[in-house]
């Protein structure tokens, strides 16, 4: 029965699931911060800042995430940048950083769309009250994008959970790598991968349902 093997190797399956959850949460938090910052660059009144934001988005969206992970894992230490002196900690942080950087580009585009969707009259009203550009962003424009960006950010979160599996390629023992290790020890591929599949579905299906629900509610509200 698939799933039973999980209790034979709880460290690799449940421990792996926990690592997957941790990387997802850290990566998403980072992606939200990076994405919002890059979106603000993208709509900045200063052209060079806009170009910088566009370059970020295009670079990270048009190159594979694995390449970015390899770069963080192998490249940075060579120029003296280490995430941690501990190797395991170091690859874990490299993975979370990679998730944040890559998905930050997607978040940026979503947030930018939300910001541009705010009625121009809102910005004029805020400015004519004497709010500075930064205050206008903080109190008027950004809060109004929140509703519109929740469902798309939910979709990015689902992609992110799935993409944490790529951390296995740099040696992070998350869920997929856990299953691979079990397979290599037991040669029970079906059971190992079916169990990993179930555990992934446990994360992504509820997330997907929540996003669909929010999407539908927002579509009706419009």
């Amino acid at each position: 029965m698939p799933g039973a093997i999980a209790f034979q190797f709880p460290d690799l399956f449940f421990g792996g699931l926990w690592v997957t959850i941790q990387i997802s949460a850290l990566g998403l938090a980072g992606a939200l911060v990076i994405g919002t910052a890059v979106a603000l660059l993208r709509i900045s009144p200063a052209a060079p800042l806009r170009w910088l934001g566009a370059a970020y988005v295009e670079f990270f969206r048009n190159t594979p995430l694995v390449v970015q992970l390899f770069f963080l894992f192998l490249g940075l230490p060579l120029v003296g940048l280490r995430f941690s002196s501990d190797t395991f900690e170091s690859i874990f942080r490299a993975a979370a950083t990679g998730m944040a950087l890559y998905h930050g580009a997607y978040v940026a585009e979503v947030v930018r769309g939300g910001l541009l969707g705010v009625d121009k009259g809102q910005i004029e009203a805020a400015r004519s009250l004497g709010l500075s550009y930064a205050q206008m962003l903080r109190y008027v424009q950004l809060p109004q994008t929140f509703r519109a960006v929740v469902p798309p950010v939910g979709n990015i979160a689902i992609a992110l959970v799935k993409n944490t599996s790529l951390a296995s390629t740099i040696g992070v023992t998350e869920l997929l790598f856990g299953a691979e290790i079990v397979e290599s020890r037991t040669f029970r591929a079906e059971e190992s991968f079916a169990t990993a599949t179930l555990l992934y579905l446990l994360l992504t299906i509820p997330l997907g349902l929540a996003v669909n629900y929010l999407e539908r509610r927002l579509l009706v509200a419009r």
Binding site: E124, A125, Q144, F146
Partner: peptide, 9 residues
Amino acid sequence: FQSFNLFPH
């Protein structure tokens, strides 16, 4: 303004 432009949030 003509269109009020109250902040909806």
